[in-house]
Design a binder for these strands. Sequence first.
DNA 1: CGTGTGATTGACGCCTGTCAACGTCTGTGG
DNA 2: CCACAGACGTTGACAGGCGTCAATCACACG
Lengths: 235, 235
Amino acid sequence: MKYTDTIPSCLDCLKDNDSIFKYLIPEELKRIDDTKICNIYKRGNVVYHEGSRINGFYCIHSGIVKVFQTGIDGREQIVYFAKSGDIIGYRSVLSDELACTSAKVIEDSVLCFIPADVLVELIKGNGNFSLAMMKKTCKELGKANAYITDIAQKTVRERLAEVLLNLRETFGEDNEGVLKILLTREELANIVGTATESVIRLLSEFKNDHLINLNGRKITIIDHKKLEKISNAFS
Amino acid sequence: MKYTDTIPSCLDCLKDNDSIFKYLIPEELKRIDDTKICNIYKRGNVVYHEGSRINGFYCIHSGIVKVFQTGIDGREQIVYFAKSGDIIGYRSVLSDELACTSAKVIEDSVLCFIPADVLVELIKGNGNFSLAMMKKTCKELGKANAYITDIAQKTVRERLAEVLLNLRETFGEDNEGVLKILLTREELANIVGTATESVIRLLSEFKNDHLINLNGRKITIIDHKKLEKISNAFS
DNA sequence: CGTGTGATTGACGCCTGTCAACGTCTGTGG
DNA sequence: CCACAGACGTTGACAGGCGTCAATCACACG
């Protein structure tokens, strides 16, 4: 599965994606280019597993990866989606803990693995990069806190509406209006934090109310306004 | 409310508390000592308010502060408790966003305010401190993710048991076994993410099953083992 | 064509939120 | 010293959102 064909250079990658690495100086970027290991992953492949020790982190060159925790009787709770330009696994590296999440590929991906000590080195050495990483982590923490409040106070219906809007915001839609991320009903349920059947029922309710269109896993948002009202957004 | 009497020196504070500032060199610590502003806060006082811009962060010298988000119709969701040695408000400073939480004093406190630019300066200048801050934030992020999973998958009963155990872990108990944090039933509900009445009902259930003792706001954990079993801990 | 995975629908019941009434305690002011 | 207001705690009744179980359908794939 080694990806020796055309290893993406970080410099090229930076042009396309808004990555955290833009805060690095050329020599530092070269250090990453030299140490990274790139691989192709297919949908369903596991990038890393909860409870394992990770000695590095991954940068998403292309594709989509879901990051989730495994809860009671193996039910997944998705806490994050990573797309091109994002990095995953750095949390465990920096907190010096075992991975508290698993990562699995949703859409065929090219991922670059970068050793832990390179990251530590960069944070210690480059104040601007360090600050940017802090900022990134703090923003994620803010989002996590907001989601705790959401999930604790909103109904499943409200949360589903919100999740749909978030997905559009994050992944956009093609020129037909179809969300550029395909998820199973179960995966949707694992974001919202509910049962698969509930998602199915609510989705067809939304469809009947002409808020969305459904075509298999393809979801089209029709009435953005009403969805927002349902989601009861207070942020 | 200015606390001019006996301003706690950071050096003394470090001896008692395990604070993040232990990674600073003496000159840096002095910089904080020189710029900080210390105040006394009484129970109920608001430290900072959601949506406001904070131009610094707070270090808890003594007391307890709850950090929460305000959700639908003003209901609070508590996301963090800060006690002596902890810092709060740094998230908003570093993410350069408005405060996404409010902080309110639970137990009379002495808080030291430290300007934002001092923090940024330290992170940029001291790699070890920077790394420690990253580590701290990453750990918090891990906890937040774990709580998302919890709240999404566990029942109220399980979560309440877990919260009680967490409180004991964090704040300890006096020699009578009473938890060293006093919360109203509503505050407990705002941690668990449920209605006040549910907390009351479950608490008296726990009491009847001889898992805990209740005396007003004083809670004593009797049967740690069974509570753990109820909490369904999978971590 | 059998097998397996995912999607859908219906039935059922419990957990839990909401509403309402009442009890308890503390502090304040007359 | 007592009355009263207000915050907090408790209990009961009730309904409905949502999880669970089970059966069936749809579709892809070897």
